[in-house]
């Protein structure tokens, strides 16, 4: 459809050029701009239309809900002003789960950025440099993404709760704790699970970005006596920095929405000390305890998070672009 539209535009342009006398090369500036604008509009038309219907149309609902309250007698939502926001903010200090959720979300995020991201980069680099067995490793590293989260979480749960204590018992260590229970071990184990099963999508994207790096730059580096490690830090990382930026920027939203596969492990009854913000909101809306009365406060919570996260994201993006290593 788009192709046809543009094809038609193309055709008309050709005609208009033929009809216009003089040099094609000295096309007037405004004509060139208009042409660019026409293409711009055409390419954006359908996606924007889809967004208006399916995103704006539908998500106005979320914003609307945040200002409403559910009336159980009539089954309708009625105007509630800013009460939901007030209720949520008050609950922040009274709900016992909030301190845990915030702390855990923060831990998850920081570990994701300072351990997960570098690990992904490093592994992607190994594969890029074609260590022996690259083809095999690529498949292995991606395996957790292929097997659905259900499988990997069942595998992991059985292993950690069943096999690990048994193994330690054979080695003479009695009473090895259940790593998926108790306030001390549960969340760290979950973080480990997220890292362990999380290679895959980042790996592919970094690998793709790395493969786009101009080989001649690498050659030049080698001629200058750069070791492989230097190659990594001085050439590869700076050149794919826009991609890394993307992930860091996306990650900020993830701070509020990451539910760390907790639903897979614990259903809707995860203990408070292991919950994250994302999980808390998710259960409020999806769990079987959720009723229509829960949606408004969850919407309000979501809006508040957005108001915090949006400027943060833009700030981080700005900082990274300003102070990150540049292509030069």
């Amino acid at each position: 459809m788009k192709g046809i539209k543009n094809g038609i535009k193309d055709f008309f342009y050709d005609i208009s050029v033929k009809l216009t006398p003089k040099n094609k090369k000295t096309k007037s500036h405004s004509a060139a701009k208009r042409e660019a604008l026409i293409f711009y509009i055409c390419i954006l038309a359908l996606p924007i239309l889809q967004m208006c219907i399916f995103y704006i149309g539908i998500n106005v609902n979320t914003i609307k809900l945040a200002f409403e309250k559910y009336n159980p007698d009539t089954g309708q939502y009625v105007w509630n002003g800013f009460n939901n926001f007030k209720d949520f903010i008050i609950s922040l200090s009274t709900t016992t789960v909030m301190p845990y959720a915030i702390k855990n979300s923060l831990k998850l995020y920081l570990i994701g950025v300072f351990i997960g991201l570098p690990l992904n980069l490093i592994f992607a680099f190994f594969l890029y440099k074609k260590v022996p067995g690259t083809g095999f490793f690529r498949v292995i590293l991606f395996l957790p993404q292929i097997l659905s989260g259900v499988v990997t979480s069942i595998m992991f749960a059985y292993f950690v709760e069943g096999a690990v204590p048994a193994i330690f018992e054979k080695m003479g260590v009695a009473d090895f704790p259940n790593l998926l229970s108790g306030p001390v071990y549960t969340f760290p184990t979950i973080i480990f699970y997220c890292l362990w099963s999380g290679f895959g999508s980042q790996l592919i994207i970094y690998g793709t970005a790395m493969s786009g790096v101009d080989e001649s730059l690498i050659e030049a580096g080698k001629l200058d006596g750069l070791s492989t490690f230097g190659e990594f830090f001085k050439i590869i990382v700076p050149l794919i920095f826009p991609t890394i930026t993307t992930y860091l920027v996306i990650g900020i939203a993830g701070f509020f929405t990451n539910q760390a596969s907790l639903y897979n492990f614990f259903g809707q009854n995860a203990q408070e000390y292991t919950q994250t913000l994302g999980y808390y909101l998710f259960v409020k809306v999806v769990g079987s305890k959720a009723t229509l009365g829960d949606y408004p406060v969850a919407s309000a919570a979501g809006l508040i998070f957005t108001c915090i996260a949006a400027p943060l994201t833009i700030l981080v993006k700005y900082l990274l672009e300003r102070f990150g290593p540049s292509v030069e």
């Binding site: 149309g57 998500n59 979320t62 969850a298």
Partner: peptide, 27 residues
């Protein structure tokens, strides 16, 4: 418009969709 779209995408990523199922179905 480009700058607007870019920022819009970011905000959209942060805005959670809560309770939108009913409206999605009707649309």
């Amino acid at each position: 418009f480009s700058g607007f779209i870019y920022n819009f995408v970011i905000v959209a990523m942060l805005l959670p969709s809560v309770g939108t199922l009913a409206s999605e179905i009707s649309i």
